[in-house]
Computed example of a mutant assay.
Amino acid sequence: MLRKIAVVLMEDIALFEFGVLAEVFGLDRTDDGVPPFDFKVCSTTPGVPMQTSSHSQVIAPYGLDELEDADLVAVPATNWRQAYDERVLDALRKAAARGAILLSVCSGAFVLGAAGLLDGRPCTTHWRYVDRFRREFPTAKMDPDVLFVDDGNVITSAGTAAGIDACLHLVRRELGSAVATRIARRMVVPPQRDGGQRQYVEVPVPECSAESLQPVLNWMVDNLTIEHTVPALARRAQMSERTFARRFVAETGTTPLKWVTTQRVLRARTLLEQTRMGIEQIATESGFGTAALLRHHFRRVVGVPPQDYRRTFQTAG
């Protein structure tokens, strides 16, 4: 269970990556049915301003002793350096040894690597740092193509927004799909993205003054039981089909068909967790139409059949 979250800050901290952790875990969303988190921002020098990578300052109110009973210890991105504070590395090792979950965002993986916590383990980081990471930590099993890697009690994410994906995945894993979806909707982000970060390596996401597709995405989620075609979605977005398809991949990392299929699986997960509906009815309510299609896509995305998932995660009375 995720109750206490400790975020470790160091000099040259990246504000966006820190902000991702604060947005997911640091805000009170109990009015939306999200359980409260005890969110602690920690450093080796509590109360002392630290420089950020964007030439501003932040202050961590708490010391590293808060890591001693944290359920999750998170390390946001910071500028790469030859050596990290041994006090931080030792606190991370102790947290891992007692079974805490460790999560890094972007270049925060270098800190976990320096602590020896990624030796022999699958992990990822921002695609720009992959070669350097491999030189520094040759025994780590670096995967440069994914948005995040879940290796049990250690989760690493790729650059920037992939930290959101990793955090929501962890919430979903520990607290269920409904809680993750509520947080995602408040953040106005997809509750789960498909695809990896390879799409950004050679052709970065283009800058565009057009409005976000989020209203269309929200409408698709609210209307999962109807057929969604690119021509119809492009008309709703008031774009040409070609522009819509390009923008959709840029914002979601995948195609409209794959994206809506993933959202249907997420809806099915929620219904499996929270209702006693039969598989045929869940297939209809989630937009798959037939139990056979639901089973096919659910197993492909989640890794287990719907019935097995329900036995493990059902919370309905």
Rank of each mutant, 00 (worst) to 15 (best):
D71R: 02
L147S: 12
T45Q: 14
D151L: 07
E202P: 01
L272C: 01
L92H: 03
D12N: 14
V20G: 09
S43N: 04
G26M: 04
V221N: 10
G176L: 02
T262D: 12
L217Q: 13
G317L: 13
C42S: 09
T229E: 12
V216D: 11
V205R: 13
R121F: 07
Q307T: 15
L103M: 15
F298I: 01
L9D: 00
T243L: 11
D222C: 10
L117E: 06
R134N: 12
G26V: 06
T254I: 00
D222Q: 15
R267D: 02
L21E: 02
I59F: 05
T44D: 06
L294R: 03
R235M: 12
R299P: 01
D143H: 11
F133N: 05
E174R: 14
T254N: 09
F313L: 08
G120H: 11
V146Y: 03
A100H: 04
P122K: 04
G120N: 09
Q199L: 13
V216Y: 05
Y129C: 11
A237H: 06
G26Y: 03
F25Y: 12
L15D: 08
L2T: 05
A100S: 14
V249Y: 10
D222N: 14
Q307C: 01
V179W: 00
Y129D: 14
D143M: 09
F37H: 10
E280A: 13
V7N: 07
R300Y: 10
R269P: 05
D28Y: 02
W219D: 15
I183K: 02
N79R: 14
E251C: 08
L92E: 12
T125M: 02
R198I: 10
G99Y: 10
S157N: 06
T30H: 03
L92F: 06
A60I: 03
T45I: 10
V171T: 03
W219H: 13
G195S: 08
D32R: 13
G303A: 06
D165F: 08
L9T: 07
W127D: 01
D85S: 05
T243K: 11
C123P: 06
V111L: 13
F148Y: 15
F39L: 01
Q214F: 14
G303M: 02
R185L: 14
A100N: 05
V7E: 06
G113V: 07
A250T: 02
L72Q: 05
A60H: 03
A115V: 06
V7T: 00
A91C: 06
L118K: 04
F288D: 11
K40E: 11
T243V: 13
G176T: 00
L15T: 15
